[in-house]
Design a protein around this nucleic acid. Structure first.
Length: 674
DNA sequence: ACTCTAGCG
DNA sequence: GGCGCTAGAGT
């Protein structure tokens, strides 16, 4: 059927059998990180046995050697070679050594009373009474990895959420969007009808090369469907992630696992699917079959009591069976909000946003006392250690440069099973040093002591929180979140701004279309030719045109510079002693390039220094308009709505605790490759 | 300001 | 199973 003439029955030019399922609008929404577009690409990256890897790298231990990280007599991380010996987190050191005599059990670093820095000590395990564990070495590595990840992605097209010390979410939508336009110029042609509801032409690529990715195996019928844009988008995302993982491996020596999917929910399950050192793609057509093989308690936010409640309410932990339960029945058990959330979750529907926030909100330093301590003098010694710990972390947060400032300090105390706390404000006016923190902590302790029984004390913790962003000489907040008639900030590419509806979008602007192109080239230019060919590598010309002066050093020549937001030399106590092999490239902050604005946006008056920036800014308006036009339809799907108000009944035992350690249990779909 | 619960690794 | 950590709701 070479004739390009009208699809027969369908009459509408918008719906044609030879057209994509997806519309121009849905494509455009990628550029603004719209959370409901089916083309969205989210990745979850999870470092393999992170603490253990940190020690392997630090100590220069060959990666096939079994190693575990020890905390007192227990183990808090076990690398994959050691897991072959059945060593798990439930083991203590003695048991583990019995299972595997060659096991290297490396104790975590500790702070020690009377010492002002943490250190790795041979005798730490024997000094539980005087030492407190320090996770600083891992935080430091976590930062470096995060910085590298950000460095691998185009500055203005990245959205990175630090989910924990060893996990990140990436929203790759905008980058994938740019790459799709580059590879498939036909996507840049406006819809012939002029209506963004028109369906896209079908992708010109016939077969997709998934390389080493794991794909969920599907029924033939499903697999036989031609790839549509969601598959292509996913493939591009997967290539990006493979590149990021390769960099982490090459530059820092860490392996990680990744999941690529349409949502945070599914991408996280994907990264856990195959470990270590692998990545799993869950295409949208594979979501339901994929989830079918997964226990409901493995899903995000269902690992705790809520999950137990679900299981006991419906007498199954199978996602497949839960899907057969009508919404009303779920509502009856869990309350409306939670029910709707669950109903969507077990269908892989999750529109939660990737927050481009890599900053922590509070920090805590704590110690459990075994045995309990009994005097103020003892407590005060610990407060000094806590203060030192927290201070060094505050320095890393940029407290010296007033980048971030904690508003409150809090002391918790446990006595006779009861916990009490006191908190007080931290003045933002005066200097905050270790001594000041210590003094505040002592005050709080005195308040607690004045109010009741304190001894014996089983636990003390000091925390600071309520961080505010830099105040001094920094107009960030006021400038960006001021007026109702919100305009996109003209000069800062990665900041978010709220638009009137209260949603946030990121606005690409300024010189960064160029960075973007460059950075995409990084990924695809140095790839074996076969790879791009499978997708039909067009769009090259366009890139050539855009990638003008590439005078700056190639990313390959750079370390993680320019990304870490710390100022120079704000490191904690780190490289100490010969055993410490973490390297610490000192980094410089991002430079501000103030530019003269000679091009103005007609719509919002934002100024730009060159035509390309202006164009890219107008693209943003275009995409945002489309997103806005979609507002009514979009559900602001959210958190699990922790069954607060209506939990009521039978929060019964359920005592599920599946904790079996088996990872790929029951009927999960098999994987096609390795 | 303070307490409590939850979730995760 | 405990510990260290973070977040957020309720009051």
């Amino acid at each position: 059927m070479p004739s390009p003439s009208p699809a027969s029955g369908a009459s509408s030019p918008l719906r044609d059998a030879r057209r994509s399922r997806f519309t121009y609008r849905q494509l455009a929404q990628l550029a603004t990180y719209g959370t409901t577009t089916p083309l969205r690409v989210i990745a979850h990256i999870d470092l393999d046995a992170f603490y253990a890897q940190c020690e392997m790298v630090r100590l220069g231990i060959p990666e096939d050697k079994p190693l575990a990280v020890q905390q007192w007599q227990g183990l808090i991380a076990i690398n994959y070679p050691a897991r072959k010996w059945q060593i798990g987190r439930h083991c203590d050191v003695a048991e583990a050594k019995k299972l595997c005599p060659e096991l290297i059990a490396q104790h975590v670093a500790t702070w020690r009373e009377g010492d002002d820095k943490w250190a790795y000590r041979d005798d730490a395990a024997a000094n539980i009474a005087t030492d407190k564990v320090s996770l600083d070495p891992y935080r430091l590595q976590s930062r470096k990895i995060l910085a590298l990840i950000k460095d691998c992605l185009p500055k203005d097209l990245q959205k990175v959420e630090k989910a924990s010390i060893d996990e990140v979410f990436l929203d790759l939508s905008a980058q994938v969007h740019a790459e799709l336009l580059r590879r498939f110029p036909e996507l840049s042609t406006p819809p012939s009808s002029g209506d963004v509801a028109e369906h896209l032409p079908f992708p010109s690529a016939a077969a997709l090369d998934w390389q080493t990715d794991n794909l969920v195996v599907l029924e033939e019928e499903q697999e036989a469907l031609d790839p549509d844009w969601d598959d292509v988008a996913m493939l591009v995302g997967s290539e990006i992630v493979r590149g990021v993982r390769a960099q982490i491996r090459e530059r820092l020596g860490y392996t990680c696992s990744a999941g690529i999917a349409n949502s945070k929910l599914v991408s996280k399950l994907g990264s856990a699917y195959k470990k270590p050192n692998a990545q799993t793609v869950v295409r949208s057509r594979a979501v339901l079959p994929f989830l079918t093989g997964i226990k409901v308690t493995k899903m995000r936010n269902l690992g705790g009591k809520l999950g137990d409640q679900v299981v006991s309410s419906f007498n199954t932990e199978s996602v497949k069976e839960l899907r057969d339960i009508p919404l009303d029945q779920i509502k009856a058990k869990l309350g409306d909000e939670t029910a709707v959330w669950l109903y969507n979750t077990i269908r892989g529907v999750d529109h939660s946003e990737v927050n481009s926030r890599t900053q922590i909100k509070s920090m805590l330093s704590a110690k459990s006392f075994r045995p309990s301590i009994n005097t103020p003098e003892q407590a005060i010694k610990w407060l000094r250690i806590f203060a030192g710990d927290i201070y060094s972390r505050l320095v890393e947060e940029g407290i010296l440069e007033h980048k971030r400032w904690p508003r409150t300090i809090n002391l918790h105390h446990r006595h006779a099973g009861q916990t009490r706390s006191k908190q007080s404000p931290i003045s933002s006016g005066k200097a905050l040093d270790e001594q000041a923190l210590f003094n505040l902590a002592k005050d709080l302790l005195h308040q607690i002591m004045a109010e009741g029984d304190v001894w014996p004390c089983a636990n003390l913790s000091l925390s600071v929180g309520g961080f505010e962003e830099g105040v001094k000489g920094n107009m960030a907040i006021g400038a960006f979140f001021k007026k109702r008639d919100q305009v996109p900030p003209p000069l800062r590419p990665t900041d978010t701004c709220t638009i009137p509806e209260g949603r946030t979008v990121e606005q690409p602007s300024k010189k960064h279309r160029l960075d973007e192109v460059r950075s995409i080239q990084r990924f695809f230019a140095k790839r074996p030719a076969g790879d791009a060919a499978s997708l039909g590598a067009n769009g090259q010309l366009q890139v050539e045109k855009l990638s003008v002066d590439d005078t700056s050093s190639s990313w390959l020549d750079r370390g993680s510079e320019g990304l870490d937001t710390r100022g120079p030399d704000t490191r904690g106590p780190d490289t100490r002693g010969p055993e410490s092999r973490f390297s610490h490239d000192t980094t410089t902050g991002p430079e501000d390039s103030a530019q003269a604005a000679i091009y103005a946006c007609a719509r919002c008056k934002a100024g730009f220094s060159d035509e390309v920036s202006l164009q890219s800014h107008q693209d943003w308006h275009f995409a945002k308009d489309i997103q806005d036009s979609e507002c009514a339809a979009s559900t602001p799907s959210q958190q699990p709505t922790p069954s607060r108000g209506h939990t009521s009944r039978s929060s019964g035992p359920a005592s599920r605790r599946g904790r079996g350690g088996s990872k790929l249990e029951q009927g999960q779909s098999r994987l096609r490759f390795g």
